[in-house]
Nucleic acid binder design. Sequence first.
DNA 1: AAAGGATTCAAACGAGTGTTTAAACTAACT
DNA 2: AGTTAGTTTAAACACTCGTTTGAATCCTTT
Lengths: 210, 210
Amino acid sequence: MSHADTKTRIMDTATQLFARDGFHLTSLRTLTEQANVNLAAVNYHFGTKEELLQAVISRHLLPLNNIRQQKIEAVLAQAEADNKPPVAKDLLHAFIKPTLDFRNSGPGAKDFIALIGRSLSEPDETVRIYFIQQILPIFKLLFTGLQKALPELPANILMTRLQFTLGTMGHAMSSNLRPDQMVPGLPEMLSADELAKELINFVTSGLEAP
Amino acid sequence: MSHADTKTRIMDTATQLFARDGFHLTSLRTLTEQANVNLAAVNYHFGTKEELLQAVISRHLLPLNNIRQQKIEAVLAQAEADNKPPVAKDLLHAFIKPTLDFRNSGPGAKDFIALIGRSLSEPDETVRIYFIQQILPIFKLLFTGLQKALPELPANILMTRLQFTLGTMGHAMSSNLRPDQMVPGLPEMLSADELAKELINFVTSGLEAP
DNA sequence: AAAGGATTCAAACGAGTGTTTAAACTAACT
DNA sequence: AGTTAGTTTAAACACTCGTTTGAATCCTTT
């Protein structure tokens, strides 16, 4: 087991356990045991447990945010070229779809997206602030874009609805590994593909509400 | 300080700290110190920390759910009397409004609603399952009511959108004590009163999306 | 005023936490 | 083959956690 293998195995296991049990409820002893590495390996390779979390988040969130930024800017550039305001649904699609696409790129990706979804509502500042700090530029870009798409909507109402949107996204992305929400007598939820379409529909309608 | 005073002071402080920091990140030493009671008082009056959590949730959630149930059943009964299907927005209003009304009934109530909002996305089963167990009957009632209101919507799509609705509510109710979401250059969110109207608007439009 | 049950208190218990240490091991390069 | 840098390992450290204990205190009832 080489250097990279150990680091990768730690990060993969950390993604899975942080998503399922949360950051603080995951002990380094449980984590390193499941990853088949020595207890001290986390501190050796990452410094502290918190730095491991930051590494886990950054590994996939940075490229994901780059894709989101490109897609949003593409929508805005196209609207500018057409001399028309951008369409809200296109902007939301550019913001949401890359996340759901990444989620379908593998089982580890699913864990990561669940972790990201949970980060928004994380009580501990350690997790939440680090996540918000990374997504803030994209959020601002999306906000100003939506202001052009919905110029008649007051800024603070748009802001509120955008917060609702984030809450909906976070809940949808993190609620996949919850067996306790499948209740007898109630229908199951949709598949991952249908979920993407429904999520975008839902928040678009919400944002454009009268 | 009598028996009831100690129990109440523990529950009030627990509500505040569980909402702000989460269940597991709140230590009994911090809690009892802030409540000005002895460390052993929690175990004496409630048995365990987990039973304290259940007492804190039940104290306000049971009456709140009773109100919700009455309001939803009133909407359904009125629709039946008029020989018309119920209106989705009325059902959502009956489900959401009591929560936001209770939130405005005092500072402790605000903490409690934040705790409830966070319960949905709690990683730990201890918190989440106990909360879901209490809200499930109301959820089922709301679901069957909405099926009558939106008969053309497939059951699993309605279920998905209802999950989105819960995610939006939980996020909106728990994001009030987050200073880190106020960002320079972005407008602040709405006041509590306006928030209620916007939340109902948002999820109604989302549920009725084409 | 005395008795007795309820409550509060300081102290300790055992288990679990993240982190550090120093020795053992591995692999590559001179 | 020997040296060196990088990595793994077992053990220990210092600390916090929820809970328990038994004595001290309070309050009500007789």
